[in-house]
Structures are given as structure tokens and as C-alpha cells.
Amino acid sequence: MEVNLQELNKTEFPVPAELENNIAITSLSELYNWGRRNSLWPMLFGLACCAIEMIATAASRFDFSRFGFEVMRATPRQADLMIVSGTVTKKMVVPIVRLYNQMPEPKYVMAMGACASGGGPFKEGYNVVSGMDKYLPVDVYVPGCPPTPQALLHGMIALQRKIDGQSIANGDDVPWYGVGTAEPTPVPVLGPDIIDPRQMDMIRRQAEAAATDIASIGIRELPAATQMVAARVTADAAAESETSPVSQDALSFVLPTGAAPWAEAEDIREKRKLRALARKALRATRRAAAAEEE
């Protein structure tokens, strides 16, 4: 959003002649956003390789102070924007969530690079969080490994656009003016693996299921998910041929309750597949009908 003073002066509101060029009229939201978008203070906080590119973006050649980002604050209490610049590990996500909770609202999170966006090249690693958005709400994702300074600048401008779109009149856009204090994001706990307090119940259920020999995944010392899928596929194939009695046993061992925890995802995928097939069939009939008309 550019504020053009000439534009602002041309108003239908009656302005006394002596005050012309001294009064600008705009909406409160626009003024408010104009101020916010051009003074976003990032937190001085780097995680990994992307932090080096972030520094390069801050340095003389690319210089993000041109866009109002220059005041990097080392304390979260003075920062508006958290640039998650690099791989988020399980050990590091605990302090990151704490830092986020200490930032005053309005606050924004930018996932810089492939790792912060979704785990990146290190996604499969046992100590790697597959994306910052597993724990915090992310506003802008910047792809790249690492993103070039140009890409980071583009992401920052995208964030400014996002702010431009927010209206002070809309309560959903400015939740920080709501009643009471905002709930802090629950800080993860380092146990045998990282534990998200929001998933405590789920973990407990899974652990109970594991204790009563019900196959569940995500709990160690049970068949790996891939093996289970393989077992089910072979069982399905055997069931189709209807010759092997072993198949039902295998199936009941793997899936005693008849439903796997990932069944929902499988289900959705199955439905998506059916819908795609239906669309394909529909197109084919239409094409056939069109050909007939001709």
C-alpha cells in the first residue's frame, strides 16, 4: 500500500482552503496498517544456514531496512516478527515456543526455507520437527534451501501485503483487541520423544492401545508402519484370491479392531481417488455425447 498525499488531499470532505495540503484523510485501518507494515521489527534470532542468508539480507547489499525491517531486536518482547530461519529441531522447538509466547501481539511468524516450512532435506531426521507449523501458526512460507535474499525480501513484502488486507473493523483480523489475554501456545516437553501437551490424550490412548496389544503406530517396538502397510497389502491380495486361509489371521493380527489409525487418511485418499475416477468418467460421457451431437 502506497500512501499518496496528493491523492489523500483530493477529498469530498470540505477542507478549509488554508488547511489544504495539511490535512490527509484516510481510513483508520489503512493508517494503522501503514504504520504496522512499515515498522515490522524482526527478532534477532537465527537457527541454521538460513540465518546466514538472513544476515546477508540485513547487510548492505540487500538491506531490508528499505522495507522497514531494520530494527532487529534480540528480545522477543520488542519484536513483531519471528523469522524461523533454519531447521527446527525437537530440542530447539521448546525455546522457540517460549520465545513466541513472549512476543507481544500483533505477532507474525515467517517460516524461512525448506526446513522451517516442512522439514526440508532433514525431515526424516529423528531430532527434526517437520515444519514450524506443527507447533506455531505460520503466516508466510519462504521456499528455498536456503532462500536467496531476494526470496526473503519477497516473503517480507508478502507479509506486508497480508497486513494490508487486515481491517481494524473486523474482529477476526485484529484478535489482539479482544477481551482478556490470549492463551499462550503450550510449550512442548522433552520426554522419551518430544511431547506436545495438546496431544497428551492421544499419546495416552496410543500407549494404552499398545499395552493391550492393539496394533498402533507411533509407539515404538511395534511393526513399523511400512511393514504393516505391506502386510495389509499382501493380506488384501490373499483375500481377493480367496484361497489362503492365512490371510484372515494376518489381517486380524495387524488390524484386530478392523481399523488402522491411518484409516482416515487412507479413506480420504480413497474417496479422492473415486471422485477423480467419477470426474474422468463424466468427462468421457460428455465427450461421447458431444461427438454424437456432431
Binding site: 525437537k90 507411533g218 508402519a225
Partner: peptide, 20 residues
């Protein structure tokens, strides 16, 4: 995707005797 196969939707596994 890997997270679809994990019931927690995340890169985590827990021992069966986990004491929360």
C-alpha cells in the same frame, strides 16, 4: 507423506511404557 502414516501427524514415536 510420512506424517500421514504417523498417528500423531508429527515426527514422533513413544515407548509403550511412556509415563506422561
Amino acid at each position: 507423506r510420512a506424517e500421514e502414516k504417523n498417528v500423531f501427524g508429527k515426527n514422533v514415536t513413544y515407548p509403550p511404557d511412556i509415563d506422561l
